[in-house]
Design a protein around this nucleic acid. Sequence first.
DNA 1: CATCGCTCTGTTTTCACATG
DNA 2: CATGTGAAAACAGAGCGATG
Length: 298
Amino acid sequence: MEISDMQIFMEVAKQGSVSKAAEQLGYVQSNVTARIRSLEKEMGRPLFQRHRRGMTLNPEGRKLLVYAERMTMLMNEMHKAFQNPDDPAGMLKIGSVETVVGLPDILNLFYRRYANVDISLVTGVTESLTEEVQQLKLDGAFVSGPVDVPNIEQHVVFEEELVLVCSQSREELNANTKIEQLLHLPLLVFRRGCGYRSKLEKWMQSEGVTPIKVMEFGTLETIIGTVVAGLGITLVPRAAVHKLEREGLVTLFSIPELFRQVSVVYIRRSDAYMGEVERRFLETITEVRAKRLAALYE
DNA sequence: CATCGCTCTGTTTTCACATG
DNA sequence: CATGTGAAAACAGAGCGATG
């Protein structure tokens, strides 16, 4: 048995089809079939249930899957462990929510220092990114915290203050308009699973307000753009919109303390081996955080 | 999806020969 | 004689395309 057999096995299990797995892995179907068969022979029992639309894991197969995952994890760990600590190289797969204001600083610094590391960055919402980190599809992710998920460790990156954003200026609004009244305007939010959105929903719930209209968007730019156009309100970190406020395009309102504070945390699987690349990345995060904190007290 | 016959490639074994 | 070296032969297995 080879580690490649485990990769083939996992792919077939995932795809539920030998043909699809073969396509994914760049092998020919017959080869994948043979490898699965030899694996079954070695285990002395079938691992899949065959049917006309493909094959699915049987209980024995599911048992093997646990070991297969452990093996590949160990394999990755081994490669990371033997990396040259002076010149880390490789790939770092990370995810981030849309609104991490300080992310460019972190990436910039990291890129300049470790040119041999490729970073792939995907964006998503807290919930989906956390799931991907848990499934080891991502090495880590910047999400809004704190998260409370087993097997996940978190490192605080930034503390952010959420503000309510609307396009009317204070003068336009009635002098005694209360912030709570703004909640009756249409809400512009990220898709479900976003940390800011759930804060907003909690706040509204505590006010006993149900939104008249909720519009979902995929990116921060479109949300802000739509708010500027006067179509509704949203809740985002102050730093993400302070420029627009200076330009007079939006007005920001502080929200009750209970819901105001969010932290951006970097999460990773706590039981995953930390390679040199990831260690340096965390180091960079801490450094940028320290710089930002220092700047605050200047 | 499974099987077959085939090629290609890398590994292991074997053997002749050289060296101290 | 034990040990090392290099080339050739044998073997194993990965992968392919065709086919049932």
